[in-house]
Design a binder for these strands. Structure first.
Lengths: 215, 215
DNA sequence: ACGCTAACGCACGCCGCTGTCCGCCTCGCT
DNA sequence: AGCGAGGCGGACAGCGGCGTGCGTTAGCGT
């Protein structure tokens, strides 16, 4: 998954690259990806030019920085899909996803305000959504998930979860945990649920582009 | 509520002031309050200096611009509180609040990322929360609201609602409407609800201060 | 050990947003 | 109608973030 190169980087360069990614992950997790590039450089103990040399655009940096998060994301849905009890798997996915986002503010932002270019993200996102859709289908069949649930509801909940901001990181995951529990409560099939209002399309598979801007 | 003046403004000045507020409301509603002051001025057909003369700081502008929204907010909770059926009133409050926020992105931001100075906001916010708390108490008593609900859950839901961003305004309210319905589903008392994880304090009554910055 | 070259960091120019100063305009009073 | 004060807008300086060119340093192969 590391890039193939016409010639590998020099040892110090590779070291810096790693330090940059670490710094980026750390700062993105806490402050979101609105932080200036220079701040990332500062934290990495590196000059701005070096940062820009490795990652010419912020988008590239973000993409690289959250590669492992995307793996985690895939892991979560795969695990959920493998669960013999589809409803339990579904709940696990919701919970884990929310926690993942709670622990890393930047990841949420990266996943949500879709990068125009980061097709890699789009692909993985699509994969995760299809998996959740399948899981939801089974959970409905098992009569545990409310019948009027639609896939967009997951996106809705994840977006909503991203709106939760708390000062301390621990409180953040705590809040997200409770929110996830509420969401699951809402999704649960029940005799006396009132019908939900119609959905509005949320995630056109790769069209919106807010602005060209990234952060 | 309008400011008392040593001498009233001139007619044209007052006209401009109104135009500025209209422009601010319009642009804040759509784009949030990250928009530059100059943009507000442009839309108002006014030079930047004029804007700054009327509203020396962005915070004052925002506070004035959302005064009526705050009234609406109060109206919503009062109406809910007046409802003979507390659960119905509670649901109405949730729905209306979500819709209010869906229709105006800036208002959400204004209410959430609390302004250090805008004590007026804090007071009204406190009022609304106390009212909702009372409403919740009654709804619990009536057996319609789940017993483990806490006031912070409302804040949680409102914050979450603010995380929902969609391109078109109509889709925005539509999405928020569905989200509100889900939230209500989650809050509804039910025989087979699993207990919620513990809450984390969300809204220390007036302490946090993110940054001094406003937009 | 030596040199070639990749990599580094300083420093620069650019741009957008903020907030303010000054000369001209116009409302409103007489 | 005329005058004066208050209001208006164009212009200006400061700041912070972005992205880049250039001289210097240090890895790595011989």
């Amino acid at each position: 998954m590391t890039d193939r190169l016409p010639h590998a980087l020099r040892s110090d360069a590779l070291d810096n690259r790693e330090r940059i990614l670490d710094a980026a992950r750390a700062v993105f997790a806490v402050d979101g990806l609105d932080v200036p590039m220079r701040e990332v450089a500062r934290r990495a103990g590196v000059a701005p030019a070096t940062l820009y040399r490795r990652f010419p655009t912020k988008e590239m940096l973000v993409t690289e920085a959250f590669a492992e998060q995307m793996y985690a994301c895939r892991g979560v849905v795969d695990e959920g899909l493998a669960d013999p009890d589809p409803w339990h798997g579904f709940c696990q996915v919701i919970e884990k996803m929310c926690e993942l986002h709670a622990r890393d503010r930047g990841f949420t932002a990266a996943l949500m305000s879709t990068f125009p270019k980061a097709v890699d993200f789009e692909a993985r996102r699509e994969y995760a959504l299809r998996a959740i859709d399948e899981l939801a289908r089974r959970a409905k069949e098992a009569g545990r998930l409310r019948p009027d649930f639609v896939l967009d509801d997951v996106i809705l909940v994840l977006m909503a979860n991203s709106g939760i901001h708390v000062t301390s990181p621990t409180a953040q995951v705590s809040a997200s945990r409770r929110f996830a529990a509420l969401a699951i409560s809402a999704f649960q099939a029940s005799p006396d649920v009132s019908p939900l209002p119609p959905v509005a399309r949320l995630a056109p598979p790769a069209s919106v582009s807010r602005r060209g801007q990234v952060g």
